[in-house]
């Protein structure tokens, strides 16, 4: 087993809304080892992006602990927060809105270097920017271009270069490829894998795209309305998924093949938002197996099989364990 880089324990993030507390992230626990990728999957509104931002400290957590490299960083002062930016970075979903349209590529990539006074001279800075552009496969002729002159894939490469400028050890990737076309998506995924190998990076890879998450992740966590429902090794999740939501989610993906027609579990209803949630399983109203207990008692995350955590009252019954 590798060295634990990030440990998150019982993390909660509630937002105040006029209608009550929105439980965006509710009691989430996981660890990420050095050089590994944790995939976080869920549908829109399940709190996966909020989780990413809370882990980074961009949002203040309501409760729980975030331990980075053995140090509790849940509540840190401004100076420590600033220092942590060198280790923890983020890549955003939208390569259009995440780059300042008034800044040229060179300025965007150089900004973190300027903030941390990494380069002594202008030449050194330019050298470093070019190095980063090479690293992410961005042609140097774009150094003076503006973001709007480039396509989505190249813009996402700028975002990656900016995140890498400080040589972080941990990167939250918030849907980094969902705004891109498939052929470009594959280029970016390969790039991210290469970078992980070269620099021993740890990723928290947030996405709604199950085939992408399977491809890139070591471990996968499935979230539903702010809660984690299943966490295990990636291969295990696709072979031997236990939670009824995971099963429905996996069967809902349209497969690019006409051979394997599977029986699809079509869920009733839609996601709601977890404002002042009632006790009980949040998936129960849409679950085909829900019993009385599911509507009244919160399920807890249990290690059902070695390394395979599920939060469901009926998990043993459903899977004949």
């Amino acid at each position: 087993m590798g060295k634990k880089l990030l440990e998150v324990k019982n993390l909660k993030k509630y937002f105040k809304t006029p209608n009550g507390a929105l439980h965006a992230v509710d009691d989430v626990t996981f660890t990420i080892e050095e050089g590994k990728t944790l995939g976080v999957v869920g549908e829109s509104g399940c709190g996966k992006s909020t989780l990413g931002r809370t882990v980074l400290g961009l949002l203040e957590s309501t409760d729980g602990h975030i331990i980075f490299d053995g140090e509790d960083v849940t509540h840190v002062n401004k100076a420590k927060f600033h220092e942590l930016r060198r280790d923890m970075q983020i890549i955003f979903q939208d390569p259009y809105s995440s780059l300042n349209p008034r800044m040229a590529v060179a300025d965007i990539i150089a900004e973190p270097l300027e903030i941390f006074n990494i380069c002594k001279t202008k030449e050194e800075k330019e050298e470093k920017v070019k190095e980063l552009m090479d690293l992410v496969g961005l042609d140097q002729r774009f150094i003076n271009s503006y973001p709007h002159e480039l396509d989505g894939g190249r813009r996402q490469r700028i975002g990656i270069a900016r995140a890498l400028a400080l040589e972080p050890r941990f990167i939250v990737c918030d849907e980094p490829v969902s705004a891109l076309d498939v052929s470009i998506q594959a280029q970016i995924l390969n790039l991210m894998q290469d970078l992980q190998e070269q620099r021993n990076l740890s990723y928290m890879f947030i996405t709604h795209n199950l085939s992408v998450v399977k491809h890139i992740s070591d471990d996968i966590m499935v979230m539903y309305l702010g809660q984690m429902v299943e966490l295990c090794e990636g291969k295990e999740l696709f072979k031997n998924n236990l939670h009824p939501y995971t099963k429905a989610l996996l069967s809902a993906i349209p497969k690019a093949s006409i051979k394997s027609k599977i029986d699809r579990i079509v869920l009733r209803g839609e996601l709601t938002s977890p404002i002042n949630p009632h006790p009980g399983c949040r998936f129960a109203p849409r679950c085909n197996y829900a019993g009385d207990e599911c509507f009244s008692v919160n399920p807890t995350l249990e290690e059902i099989l070695p390394g395979h955590f599920v939060s469901c009252h009926k998990v043993k019954e459903i899977n004949n364990l």
Partner: peptide
């Protein structure tokens, strides 16, 4: 979302 997409496709 995928689960909703599945409903609509069906």
């Amino acid at each position: 979302d995928v689960t909703i997409q599945a409903q609509v496709i069906e």
